[in-house]
């Protein structure tokens, strides 16, 4: 790990200013992803701004009937929150499907959104990777791509967003709230939070330098069966090959987003009108234009079957 200086400010505006003031500075919250990457020298910040003292760790009702989740609310606490369990079950289920108990105790709401890809080429510093080292190339395109994106990727990068929480946030139409170094607040719909790679895969999100996430807000609850169905190589503590976050009525009507298939949670709202016709009608539209590799073409069929299972569960 490269050496760094460290500070622990006490307000969000101070924290944003601290990161903006120094080159190569980063926020650290739970640290479960950042420290892992720092040990591998994939991330090499020269300055760490510890945001754990910012008092952004409560879940509160909003005037609109939704919830405002502080950036530092730990994954365990969010999954266990009585209101989330009752009204936003898809979010609770998605969180509990991710990582391990130890990691969920540390990992934060904001940090979960900001976690980086688990593409094996991103992690292997002996390999080229456009996301890790812009312009160096993408060996995944012709390499081992079983876990990687089938849609939304580019000729520069086919990495996936690896998380579960964000897929649930996407189907819930969550909004990310931020503050910048000048103290200005901004609201970013979660649909616009993660970028597609295009020619600049090094930037995972639409956050600006020094911009700090302060909260994620959920609109008022949506009725229906809340489902998070995750398919992976083992039953626990593994990343999704394909996941489905859905809120469905008994007639099949509702909303659905897919994880494990793209650089960001993948949702095509227009396709949701076809949910009563069955999974294939929906996935044909959601994955129109998909460019799978030979290794990961299975994900298209798997997405259809996982949605079929979710629809069956909702009708039961």
């Amino acid at each position: 790990m490269r050496s760094f200086t460290y500070e622990r400010p006490s307000t969000p505006a101070e924290a944003a200013a601290a990161v903006a003031a120094k080159p190569n500075a980063k926020f650290i919250a739970g640290g479960t992803n950042l420290l892992d990457l720092m040990k591998l020298q994939i991330e090499t910040p020269a300055h760490l701004v510890d945001v754990n003292g910012l008092n952004l760790d409560t879940v509160e009702p909003t005037p609109e009937g939704g919830l405002r989740i502080g950036a530092l609310v730990r994954n365990t606490d969010l999954a266990a929150d009585a209101r989330v369990r009752r009204d936003y079950g898809v979010l609770s289920r998605a969180l509990l499907a991710g990582a391990s108990g130890q990691l969920r105790n540390k990992a934060t709401t904001a940090g979960n959104l900001l976690q980086r890809t688990r593409c094996p080429y991103f992690y292997d510093t002996a390999q080229a990777c456009n996301k890790r080292q812009p312009g160096s190339g993408c060996p995944a395109l012709d390499g081992v791509s079983r876990q990687l994106a089938v849609i939304g990727g580019s000729d520069a990068c086919i990495a996936t967003h690896p998380g579960d929480m964000a897929v649930a946030m996407r189907v819930l139409d969550a909004t990310v709230e931020t503050v910048d170094a000048a103290g200005a607040a901004r609201k970013i719909p979660v649909a616009e939070f993660h970028r597609l790679p295009g020619d600049t895969p090094e930037a995972d999100t639409t956050l600006r330098p020094g911009e700090l996430i302060t909260a994620v807000t959920l609109p008022k609850p949506v009725a229906g069966t809340h489902i998070y169905r995750k398919v992976r190589d083992r039953a626990s503590y593994a990343y999704a090959l394909v996941s489905v976050a859905a809120i469905l009525g008994k007639d099949g009507r509702g909303h659905v987003a897919f994880g494990g298939v793209a650089p960001r949670p993948w949702r095509v709202e227009a396709a949701e009108a076809d949910l009563p016709k069955g999974a294939k009608a929906v996935t044909d539209r959601v994955f129109a234009g998909a460019k799978p590799t030979e290794d990961n073409a299975y994900k298209l069929k798997l997405a259809e079957r996982t949605l079929t299972a979710a629809l069956t569960q909702a009708r039961a």
């Binding site: 460290y6 650290i28 640290g31 479960t32 420290l35 510890d50 365990t76 130890q102 540390k106």
Partner: peptide, 12 residues
């Protein structure tokens, strides 16, 4: 709470 002590800094 149980945590992975390898993935956190002592100074935190």
């Amino acid at each position: 709470r149980r945590i992975n002590s390898c993935l956190t800094l002592a100074v935190m």
